[in-house]
Design a protein around this nucleic acid. Structure first.
Lengths: 100, 100, 100, 100
DNA sequence: GCTACTCGGAAGGCGC
DNA sequence: GCGCCTTCCGAGTAGC
């Protein structure tokens, strides 16, 4: 916290009590709200990660090899990424040529 | 390759070649289904990751430092984990002492 | 430095002076040698990075768009990675089936 | 797209359509050559990265902690950069004072 | 100044 | 159960 925005982050200290508008409480609430939204989303993300693990577990229980499955998933993902990359290239070509 | 399930991965072996045409299609469908479920979940997970990035972005636009926010989130997460561990430990203790 | 190899890292302290063979100097030289090898390699790596930048610069000077070029390079790289992944998948299939 | 070089990317524009077919093949070869030079250099860069990893691996096998070694390397690098800056500063000073 | 990419570090899953 | 390896996350760097 040095060269960043002046008086940022959290409006260090209580000096704002001196200012006309008592906004510190609102600021805190805002930050708090952001944090909580993030934590909520992180929680959902973790649940999904667990769900995924469970699916691999089910598949394994039936005799499929998770390792192979992971490789397949990766390959398919690479496919779509490659495709997206190609499309992105076209976009950038068009931009370079003035066809926005 | 020893303790692994025999006849794994993908219906390995020749038995299915021996039987009329028993279930290969169904097996494929099953694997395919697993893969798709996983991909679906992975997709949702990625969306959440993006959502989280957006929240950090919003906060940043208002003047909060994402880097610090991340630290806060990590710390709070560690706190709850620590607390959960402690509570779990208490449960163990109680069990050990007969206070179920 | 806690659960790691006992008395490691750098043979903490001077107690080795007590041991029959005064090897500390050799140990230091060894570590020093590793560090210098690494620094040498890092140096070469940085030079290559600069060379790459220069090539993009040349191309740009002639009218090629570095951004596009980078995308092309990335795509081609993804191609080879995809291919490698496919081959790796085959290997893992073979392993699962016992064809080591 | 405004500040970009006009006539970019790949011989943009219509002139090449106008001329019989003068140089398109050569242009392609040129771009291709750039790309290949870059890929060559990137390849060497990757090899060096692997070499570096190997050195850390060797050191680790003997009991040195790679993590600490990395810290040392970083610190030494900062030292030389700092020293270079200082020397550069001295040169500037000398120039300013007429001690070329 | 911001964004995107690359690199290093940490954690989790897998195999032995 | 431990160690290895892959994968995910965060940090630093470079380009626009």
């Amino acid at each position: 916290m040095s060269e960043k925005e002046p008086g940022i982050g959290h409006n260090s200290g209580k000096d704002n009590a001196a200012k006309p508008f008592p906004k510190q409480g609102e600021q805190d609430a805002r930050l708090r709200s952001f944090i909580e939204r993030i934590e909520r989303l992180e929680g959902e993300k973790s649940e999904l990660a667990e769900d995924i693990k469970e699916v691999y577990g089910e598949a394994k229980a039936i005799g499929y090899d998770p390792k192979i499955m992971r490789k397949i998933v990766r390959m398919r993902k690479m496919d779509v990424e490659k495709r997206q990359e190609e499309e992105a290239l076209i976009v950038v070509y068009k931009g370079a040529v003035g066809l926005d």
